[in-house]
Design a protein around this nucleic acid. Sequence first.
DNA 1: AGCTCTTCCTGAAAGC
DNA 2: TGCTTTCAGGAAGAGC
Length: 305
Amino acid sequence: MPELPEVETVVRGLRSALPGRRILSVRLGKTDFIDDPAALGKHLPGRRIVAVERIGKFIRVELAPENGAAHPAPSSAHEPTEAGDGRLHLLVHLGMTGRLAVRSPQEPVVPHTHGFFDLDDGNELRYTDIRRFGRILLVPAAGLPEFQSRLGEDALFVSAREFSRQLARRRARIKALLLDQKSLRGMGNIYADESLWRARIHPARLAANLSAEEVARLHQAMRQVLRAAIRLGGSSISDFLDAEGKPGSYQMRHRVYGREGEKCFRCGAVIKRIIVAGRSSHFCPRCQPTPRLPRKRARTRQSKK
DNA sequence: AGCTCTTCCTGAAAGC
DNA sequence: TGCTTTCAGGAAGAGC
């Protein structure tokens, strides 16, 4: 499932293909994961892509202001002005199974492809999403700060000071807090588990109960894990592929995620899986000691890789 | 405030 | 063997 390193990998790939391109037209299949499907066809054609960035797990495709000369379609009289002029941002969240990639029209369309953005170089940007847990929305430049303000700082760039401030403020379990995009943006289940293992912290620990040393360890572990994962192109568990259709290889480095029943690489104890904050959480019961109040029933099922 | 449960969706895997 | 059920999970919303 795409988390920060996977999204970063996709963004880097798209960055070599999209900036400078103009969107000619938009074709959509199913649209139940798009905030305002009609807005895409209305505002994107004629726009030039100027940048591709990452906001947490969102891909941000920045579009230049319309320049009347190249504008192919007349816009209706009562367009909201903030969407009719100025920059626009196409935000894409890949959810669980989303993929965004540039393809030649010649290439066969894989099933569950619901979005086609035709580009002026003859290629098309395709959005594919089997489960449609993804999300696509269009935000005017003026609305971007508000959108960003609903998310915490990026997990890759957050300072040790701000990280510890986030943890101290709240009493949630550390695993829940790492996954909460309002506290910290970009973390997902895999990298939360991997970071906690590396920092030797049990996922069900209460954030406020972590020692300063543990917080520092977790901050460092998180950054190391994310950086290493980006270096390897992310993790390909189910079907993650980068913008060029290649899998990542960080799944080879997983120490706990998907390793229930196997031995801890550090101490040899058997990796366990429990549910914390509604998410399956993998940990080493010896390296990551259970907090005082034992957690809920461990659900026993082998998880694949 | 933060937890659990539910919903969305599909395909893989388990169950019978 | 083949049909049916269960399950996974990011995020949001409801209810407690």
